Simulated scan of single mutants.
Amino acid sequence: MNANDIISLISKIREKVNKRLIAEMESHGIEGIVTSHGDILFALNHRSRMTMAEIASVIGKDKSTVTALVEKLVKLGYVIKERDTEDTRIIYVTLTQRGDELKPVFKQISEELLDIFYAGISEEEKEVLFCLLSRIYGNL
């Protein structure tokens, strides 16, 4: 096994996870969003109000990408944008009621996906996997 094999496998895993996430969202009636939208909604589930810059930092995307993703979520009614009253350059993003209603669905999807992801993997193996992936991430 060489580095290209590992990179290819990680890419295939990511692709399968993304397809599974989209299929699960669609099965719960959530349509029109992709996994990057889900990243934003997930971040807002943990902090109800975030700036565009904070979202970009948390999900690892540049601000222009986040802006486009947020615009789509606004059109779909999942989030609203508000300008800071003191510094109008700052834009806050907040979940709407419709977006807030996704929390239990996302929690369920996440739990089901993790059960599938870690099937047959011991707690000790999970620790080793996490440590190795963290080290690889740090190396990059």
Rank of each mutant, 00 (worst) to 15 (best):
E86A: 12
L21A: 04
L140F: 06
S11E: 10
P104L: 10
I59R: 06
S134T: 14
K19H: 12
L132R: 10
L132M: 10
L21Q: 08
S8T: 11
I30T: 02
D5C: 01
E125W: 03
G29P: 00
D39P: 02
L133I: 12
E124Y: 08
I80G: 00
R89I: 09
N18R: 10
C131Q: 13
V66G: 05
I59W: 09
I59T: 14
I6Q: 00
G29T: 02
T96W: 04
L9T: 08
C131K: 11
D5Y: 06
L114I: 03
V66I: 08
V128A: 12
I30N: 02
Y137L: 08
V70Y: 00
I109W: 04
G120I: 01
C131V: 12
E111W: 02
Q108F: 05
S36W: 04
E127N: 12
A56T: 11
G32Q: 03
G99Y: 06
A119M: 02
S134Y: 14
V66L: 04
M25Q: 06
G120P: 00
M50I: 07
I55F: 08
L95F: 07
R83I: 03
A23S: 15
T65F: 02
A43L: 07
I59L: 08
A23T: 10
R20M: 09
I80D: 15
H37D: 07
I13L: 10
S11K: 09
E111L: 13
S64Q: 13
T65H: 12
F106H: 03
M1T: 04
I109Q: 04
N2C: 05
L102V: 04
G77W: 04
C131D: 11
G77Q: 00
N4F: 06
N18S: 12
V105D: 05
V70A: 13
T85M: 11
K107Y: 07
K19N: 14
I13A: 06
V105Y: 02
A119D: 07
I116Y: 05
L114M: 06
G77P: 02
N45I: 07
M1N: 01
R49H: 06
I30P: 01
D115F: 01
L140K: 05
G138F: 05
S36A: 14
S110G: 10
E125N: 12
D62H: 12
D100F: 04
K72F: 01
N45K: 12
I136Y: 10
S36F: 09
L140D: 00
N18H: 11
K75D: 13
E123F: 05
E24V: 03
S134R: 13
R47K: 13
S8H: 06
T51G: 09
T65K: 14
I55H: 11
R20Q: 10
L114S: 01
L95D: 04
H28V: 02
D84P: 11
E111A: 04
E15D: 15
K63V: 13
E24T: 04
E112D: 14
E127W: 08
T35V: 14
T51H: 12
K81S: 09
Y137T: 10
E24G: 01
S48R: 13
K107R: 14
